[in-house]
């Protein structure tokens, strides 16, 4: 698995809790190196080890840590790249939700080695959606949920998100869109550097 997710975890810890905390996580997880390279491959169990070490170090449950990681992925000021790539998905939050099904294909266009889990959106009507994802590691759905929360904010949409009961197909995030134009949202300019 590419080091992107591991690096996201690393950045999250460094930015929120500082280098010293990250060094303790490294020691706790027994990494043997101090930083992940986003474009190199790592063994999948390493990700689990890092998550467990972070939760231990911060004394916080896995769900809330991962959800915060997802939110930080798109809302951190120094990293608008991913937010921009996601905003290409559509001009409204509903457009964006539908574009998530294309996300693995889009990601593969950019990085052939990046295999994102398949995502399926069920439109239940009346602003209710279910997003079904097969997580690459336990709890990955919470990263997605944090990311959705940040993107809703970005679009200025008011949503209720909840992790529903897991099905055989994967983790299910239930989305209730209360108001698509609740707030102004952040501007998105197609041209890079314009906004």
């Amino acid at each position: 698995m590419l080091g992107l997710i591991n690096r996201a975890l690393e950045n999250f810890v460094k930015e929120r809790h500082g280098m010293a905390t990250w060094r303790r996580v490294v020691a706790r997880a027994g990494l043997g190196f101090d930083s992940f390279e986003p474009l190199l491959m790592y063994d999948a169990p390493l990700t689990d080890a890092v998550i467990a070490a972070i939760c231990n170090e911060l004394q916080r449950p896995r769900e809330t840590v991962l959800e915060d990681v997802g939110t930080a992925l798109v809302s951190h000021r120094s990293r608008h790249g991913l937010r921009r790539l996601l905003r290409f998905g559509g001009v409204s939050f509903v457009d964006f939700l539908h574009s998530l099904e294309e996300l693995p294909d889009r990601a593969r266009l950019a990085l052939p080695d990046l295999s994102l889990p398949g995502l399926r959106l069920e439109d239940l009507g009346a602003g209710q959606f279910n997003l079904v994802a097969r997580p690459p590691f336990a709890g990955a759905g919470f990263i997605l949920m944090g990311l959705l929360r940040a993107m809703a904010d970005d679009y200025g949409a008011l949503v209720l998100l909840d992790m529903a009961v897991q099905t055989a197909e994967g983790e299910v995030i239930s989305i209730h869109l209360l108001d698509e134009a609740h707030a102004e949202g952040r501007p998105f300019d197609l041209a890079l550097g314009a906004a």
């Binding site: 001009v91 266009l109 990085l111 300019d189 197609l190 890079l192």
Partner: peptide
């Protein structure tokens, strides 16, 4: 960039926005 175009300036079938996405993803 020069003309400040948006999604709405292209036909829904146009792949320009996908191309912009790819250019940006490639740059990243």
């Amino acid at each position: 960039g020069r003309h400040g175009l948006t999604d709405a300036d292209f036909a829904a079938t146009d792949l320009t926005v996908e191309m912009l996405y790819l250019v940006e993803a490639k740059r990243a």
